[in-house]
Amino acid sequence: MASSSGRGLVHLAAALDLSSSYDERSCAEAAQLAERGGLDFVTLDDTFARPGLDALSVLSRVAAATDRIGLVPVATPHTEPFHVPAGVAVLDRVSGGRAGWWTDVTNAGGEAPPPGRRRTRPVGALSQETGEVVAYAGAESGDRRVDGAGMPAAPSEDRAGRHRVDVRGVSSSAKAPRLTVPGPPHGRPVRVVDATDEPARGAAARYADVALVRAASAAQAAAVRDQIRAAAAEFGRRPEEPRVLAGLLVDLGDGEHAAEPGHGGGGPRQTARGPLYRGGPVDLAELIATWHGEGVVDGFHLTPAESPRDLERLVNGTVAVLQHRGLFRTFYPGSTLREHLGLAGPARQGAGHGRAS
């Protein structure tokens, strides 16, 4: 189904983070609800405020309870990031090509890591590391071997036909491990980069399949999207290749009501936790349709302020309105996250590394 605006269908994703319950069953039920709404993917943060298993372990269990929706854990700076891609590759296998990996270069709200975990670092250094790690993730997924600058080198294979990966990171607190992993049958997992902060936009333009922008206005989101597209072209990518999603915290309340001043219509309100929309599901659908129709963003990543209430109202209200207007899918035409996002099929040539600048 094509959008009546001619821009294609809007992409929608939701966070499972701000839930009153963090057990695996609750996450699986939330993901099933999002899947019934046809959302592209759900994300789960590895914040230390969430008890229980880490995000990768939880989503690996959620994979067995879902069939189509993408599953994207968020790797925070507290974890040595070079240890994450192997787990994401396993998630991609068990989910049938539905895995993604969100590299978060923020300081996770300033929360202190527990003993034995690395300390947070300046955003600039974390952004530099983002480029190294996402390049490494592509290589570890079977693309090729890369150096610390993210440039490809000749791949090598062991006798089992598995790719050996070596990345010499210059900013990580530990050298990237040399790993031997089987290449995922569906190609590398989708790479998500938070491009809200200026230092992260280069990495997003060069490596990301999905770039997230927390913008409080359509003009701000459009400016960042234009910057990412221009930089992507410089790296030899098609400018429209990175999908740019606006990140919003949404409070949909308990009934249908007009968006509060400063939230709907002209745009969300900036808060300490990021841009916030507070209003009813129908007005949220109107905001999404307007930004997407004007070419501001390719879609939205929405974080419910209160889950499962807001997720239920998002799926049963906002999504239903968008579907009725022909702006959002009514079924999944494919089975992988790359297909949901309309990305090119997996290639072994390491697409997205681009040219040296």
Rank of each mutant, 00 (worst) to 15 (best):
L252G: 11
G253S: 03
D254H: 07
D254P: 07
G255C: 02
H257L: 05
A258K: 09
A259F: 08
E260T: 06
P261D: 01
G262N: 01
G265H: 04
G265V: 08
G266S: 02
G267S: 09
P268Q: 13
P268Y: 12
P268W: 09
P268G: 14
Q270Y: 05
Q270H: 05
T271W: 10
P275H: 10
R278V: 12
R278G: 08
G279K: 12
G279A: 09
G280I: 10
G280T: 12
P281H: 06
V282H: 13
D283L: 00
E286N: 06
E286P: 00
L287D: 06
I288W: 13
A289V: 03
T290E: 14
T290I: 01
H292L: 10
G293P: 10
G293W: 05
G293Y: 08
G295A: 12
G295W: 09
G295R: 09
V297C: 14
G299H: 01
G299A: 01
F300V: 13
H301L: 15
L302P: 08
P304N: 10
P304L: 10
P304A: 11
P304C: 09
S307G: 06
P308V: 12
P308R: 04
D310H: 01
D310A: 14
D310G: 08
E312Q: 14
R313H: 08
R313F: 03
V315P: 10
N316Q: 06
N316R: 15
N316C: 00
N316M: 00
G317I: 13
G317H: 13
T318I: 05
V319C: 07
